[in-house]
Structure formats: C-alpha cells, structure tokens
Design a protein around this nucleic acid. Sequence first.
DNA 1: AAATTATGTCAGTACTATTGACGTAATTTC
DNA 2: GAAATTACGTCAATAGTACTGACATAATTT
Lengths: 177, 177
Amino acid sequence: MTDRSHPAGKPIRTAVTDEDGIDFAIIELFFFAYRDFTSDPDQILSDYGFGRAHHRVLHFVNRRPGLTVAELLDVLKITKQSLARVLKQLIDTDHVVQLQGPRDRRQRELYPTAKGRALALALARPQSRRIHAALEDFGATERALIERFLEAMVNPELRAQIDIVPAKMSGKSHGDH
Amino acid sequence: MTDRSHPAGKPIRTAVTDEDGIDFAIIELFFFAYRDFTSDPDQILSDYGFGRAHHRVLHFVNRRPGLTVAELLDVLKITKQSLARVLKQLIDTDHVVQLQGPRDRRQRELYPTAKGRALALALARPQSRRIHAALEDFGATERALIERFLEAMVNPELRAQIDIVPAKMSGKSHGDH
DNA sequence: AAATTATGTCAGTACTATTGACGTAATTTC
DNA sequence: GAAATTACGTCAATAGTACTGACATAATTT
C-alpha cells in the first residue's frame, strides 16, 4: 500500500551485508541449518501426536537415564508447568517411566522404556544421517573443529550441562559436587 | 510413582551414546548452540513486544529488500495467515514499509525503514559477537569450513535460498580483526 | 511440630503457528 | 470484453508450546 496516513519511514533499498560489521552470512546459515535439522524429527513426531517438546524430553531422558524432574527442567530451561503435560503424555504412552528416588523418595527418576529408547533413536537417526552427510569430506580434525565451534557458541555458564553427558569426551569427570 | 496399573515397560538404565551409530554429540551440541544463539535477540525483542517471528521477517526484509510477500512466505516456510499478524505489526510500528510492485501492482515489495534497519542490526549484533567469539582462534580456512558444514546441513533443494543473498562469498573481506 | 524440598496440578494467559473460507484488486487467458 | 487466475489481505476457529501464580501432597530436614 502506497498510502500512508501516518509519517512512515522511507524504504531502504540496499541490503544489509557483512560490511555492516555483522556476520550475516553465518547467522543466516545457522538459521537455515537448524530449521532443516529439526524438520526430519518433526515429521516423525507428528505421527505420534507429539511435538518438539516431547523430542527434547525424550532425548535427555535417553541421554541421562535417571535424571530427576528438577534436573530436566534445568537443562531444558522451561518451567515445571510446561514440562508437566509433555512428560505426562510420554509416561501415559509408555515411553518414559518414573521411579522413586532411592535415597530421596520425593524425587522421580526418569528412565526411558524400550519403546522410548526406540523412538529416541528413530528421531535421532535422520539427524545423524544429515550430520554424516555434511561431514562427508571432512576428517577427524575438521570434525573436532566443528564440535569446538558449536561448543563455543554455547553460553559458558551452561557448558557444564554438555559435559554431564556420559562417554564421549575423555578426562571430563568433574564428578558431582 | 512406582504404581502402574497398566503394563509399563521396564526402565532402561544405560545412556544412549555414539556407539549406537548415532552422532548424539553433535546433535546435542547443535541444540544447545542454537538455544543460546537465539536467546540474545529474544531478550531484546521482548522489550518491543515482539517475538522470534518478527525477528525472522525483519532479518529477511533487511537482507533482501524489495522481496514480495510470497517470496517471504517461501523462505520462512510458514503460512500467509501466520505471517499476516507479524508483518502487520512491523508495518504499524514503522519498521517495514510496503510498496506496490512496479511491474505487477498486485505485489507488495517489502522494505525496511531506517527504524527497521536499526532494529535488525541491533538484533544481529549479539549474535555476531557470539560467532566472532566462537571463531576467535580460527583463521579464514576454518571459518570457511564452518560455513561449508552449515551449508551442507541445509536441504539441497533449499540451498538456492541462501545463494540469493547478495555479496557473501568470493573475496569476502570480512574486514577487521 | 515446623519448615523446607520435590513434585504435581489448576487456572488463566500469550505467542506462534495451523486450516479453511472469503474478498478485492490486478493480470492473464480465451 | 468476460472469465479465470494470481497476489494479497482478513476473518474465524483451533492447536502447541510456552509463561506466571497459586495451591496440594508427600517426604525430608530442622
């Protein structure tokens, strides 16, 4: 609409580029990459009536079996109420089970069932394939570089969450406090 | 809840690892990296009452001034109705203006105003800083590698969208530092 | 016994997205 | 020139994921 009743700014016809001192190239690549990265599991999830939130819960429950609700909330950075519905659905559909904490019986330790493990793997498979394809021409050195880059993109305070993951790294056993 | 009335699966107590043939390390890194990557602009946006959807529109309007509504829908992969509200708000707040298409007057070419350009840059700044910091120890070769990786993560059919971007590669003098 | 902690749940709200339907103006086709 | 198509805008209804605040329960700690 060329009609404007209130003082509208004039159109700027030049594109922003990296010359503005901002790394638009990588910003945009990151957007496209993540959009497509999540599209594969999203499709599978819709068959189950699940969404991305279910995927995240399922992922971390499989990745750190036995984590408590509080720990999960901390990793996902969402509220208890947001988690509630999603977790309930996963439990009702027998993808996740809760066990009473052995030391503290108020706690609920979360574990995947065989069904939940299978779904988690099914969701991760296309993502892993995509990564493999993207790393096709790369060797171990380049792969390590990508990992270093991605890790550096994470907030330093939150990098601890990554290290909790079993296996993988070597001497990263800053155990529990 | 140790009580289950229906046949629930048994808890699996071992964590999934890369040994399952799946690249969980990078999958998880990608998740954390993107989560934090978007957190900076999200904070700024909330001051304006805007959300991530506004950011995306603002980004592409600044990146390809003069694109039409249809083109924008194609890039964002959302529906017209989803775009409508967001775009309207950006126009009402004088961040974006519409001009009649010169050749086809049905089309609306979208342009940023000075205000819209400023906001787009403000949103991109912390993201760019984060990228710079992550690439700190990397040279041009490593940087190119990261770009190649991210580009390879995008669906091949959709890579065309990336190339539309002006300037970009070639003798990219990603200037100072 | 009282306070705290871990979890669950209810009510209300917001944002982003969806599909379907309809209207209008401009362009293209017959 | 009339009809069909295209580009865009808008209305209504719905869903998924998130939020805040409040309150309940059981277990643990003080």
